[in-house]
Every structure is written in C-alpha cells, then in structure tokens.
C-alpha cells in the first residue's frame, strides 16, 4: 500500500545509486520536481529510462546523475535540441553517457511487456532502419504461426518508476487524466514507484477518461503542487512554453547551466513545487 511521504524522504527511500529509474509523462505531467530532488540528493550511476528525455533528463544528465540513457526521442519539443544530452553524447560532459536508443513504438511496447510480466514484446517496427545495427535490444523474430519476420524488444522493468499525477486520496490511490502517456505501464512494470501529485484529497471524484493507479501498485505518494512545471497538469496549470524556449539558451552553455543548477535546484532545497 502506498505511503504518503514528503518528496525528499520518498526519493531517499526509493532511489539508490546505480538504479534503473524511469520518469515518465509524455509532454504532460512530467515529474520535474522529483527530477530536481534526485539531483539535490546527488544520486550517481543511474540508468535513466524515458521515451522523451525532455528538459528533466537534460538537467539530470547535465548534473551527472546518469551513466546510461534508454530513450526514443531526445529533443526539446517544438524548440530544438537538448544541449546537455548532446554535450554528453558528443563530448562526454560531465561524464560519458552510454545510450540505448529505440523508437517510440519500441519503448511503449517494452513497458507493456514489463507491465504484463512477459520477457519481450513483438511489433512491426525498426525493419530496414539502422537502429537494428546499433541497439542490442532490437532483434528479429519469426512468428511461430505465420512465419512472418517481426521485431522483438525486451521488457523494461525499472527499479523505480516516477510519475506525476493530478491527485491522490489519503490511501494513496492515484488519479491522472488528459494525455495519458505511458505512466500506467511504467508504474506496473517497475519494482517500486513514486507518484508526485498536485494535491491529496479526501475522495477521488471520477473524471472521464482518467487512469487510476490503485494504491497497492504505488509505493509512495508525495504532494508536490506545481511538480510538473514547466510541463503541465491538465485542469491545474498550462504548459509554460516560454520556459521551454528559454531552456534552449541555458542548456546550450555549460556555465549558464551550472549556474542555473546551483540557483534553481540546489538553492531550492526543501522548496516543493517545480523550479524553472
């Protein structure tokens, strides 16, 4: 059953050096504040898993938390590149970053396999692309029924999944709606999970199209209002597109980034809510 904890305590209990950690949220509900807490706790040697690294992984990679990145699209949506990610891959700054690169369809299916308790997933994908030759976790497979050649990708079962949601009740049931991404699959695939939420309420009123993560599959819940900013939480606040555009200049420059990190992350210990 989920335990309700302050964010820093939840991260201390759930995330350890060397873990494989997935922060999910597809443009919407990105757990930015939790990412910043991982940076403040100076975790090291992580394998970071995420379909769209976005600003949160750009920041975590730049802060030196990751040895390895498993991903499918590493850009700043609608703006351009992620320069900390690029600097790590091209120049090994602040340290070397190994990458394991997939397509969205492949990553989504890897989470589905992980959530489903099977070792791999099958899809029509990757055939003819150079990803096949670069990524060891993409293999051809023959359908035992039709003989057709398809593609297999292994299950993803992170040590920890971290998601952000609109709200939870006091028992730790978590409710999220709007663009759903792959959060349900990530939580069900992971060994431990943390949900940060905009608010904890007495009762979860039904919302059309919402996903409920039952408390029994959530390890910890932390109330972090604004915890997805500058991404957004449908029904609470909008995406801060200006912040995404402003990130380009910060992320491009090591000194500007280091200064940002000191000011907006390390300088905000104990401040809940999204920095940046």
């Amino acid at each position: 059953m989920a335990t309700i904890l302050p964010l820093d305590e939840a991260v201390r209990r759930l995330v350890h050096d060397g873990d494989t950690v997935a922060l999910e949220g597809f443009t919407h509900l990105i757990p930015m504040a939790a990412g910043h807490e991982l940076i403040r706790q100076r975790l090291r040697g992580l394998t970071l898993v995420r379909m769209t690294p976005d600003l949160v992984y750009d920041q975590m990679i730049g802060a030196g938390l990751a040895d390895r990145l498993v991903f499918s699209w590493g850009g700043n949506p609608g703006v351009g590149s992620l320069h900390r990610f690029r600097d790590a891959v091209q120049n090994g700054w602040p340290g070397p970053l190994a990458i394991e690169e997939h397509s969205h369809a492949g990553m989504a299916n890897r989470y589905v396999a992980g959530a489903s308790g099977v070792p791999f997933a099958v899809l029509r994908g990757y055939r003819g692309t150079d990803l096949v030759g670069q990524t060891a976790t993409i293999k051809p497979i023959t359908c035992p029924f039709t003989g057709e050649e398809l593609t297999a990708v292994p299950a993803l079962n992170p040590d920890v999944a971290i998601v952000h949601a609109q709200r939870a009740d006091r028992a730790g049931n978590v409710q999220l709606w709007g663009i759903l991404g792959v959060q349900k699959e990530a939580v069900l695939a992971a060994r431990r999970s943390l949900a940060t939420v905009e608010e904890i309420v007495d009762e979860l009123a039904p919302v059309p199209g919402a996903v409920l993560l039952p408390a029994r599959v959530v390890t910890a819940v932390a109330e972090v209002p604004g915890g997805a900013s500058p991404s957004y939480a449908q029904g609470y606040y909008d995406r801060d597109n200006d912040a995404y555009q402003a990130w380009d200049a910060i992320g491009r420059d090591r000194a500007a980034f280091t200064d940002w990190l000191r000011r907006e992350v390390h300088g905000r210990a104990g401040v809940s809510g999204g920095a940046a």
């Binding site: 949506p77 709007g178 792959v182 909008d238």
Partner: peptide, 24 residues
C-alpha cells in the same frame, strides 16, 4: 500547439488514448 502534447490537443480531441494504444 508548440508541442505534440499541449493541453489544447487533449481538450479538443474526440478521445485521448495511451501511447501504447496510439502505436499498437
């Protein structure tokens, strides 16, 4: 929208499905 996941897209959609569903 600036991104493929802006709120305006979910707000005005016929329906919103998960990422595995859109691809599979």
């Amino acid at each position: 929208p600036l991104s493929i996941g802006d709120g305006i897209l979910a707000d005005t959609a016929d329906t919103v499905v998960s990422v595995p569903e859109i691809f599979n």
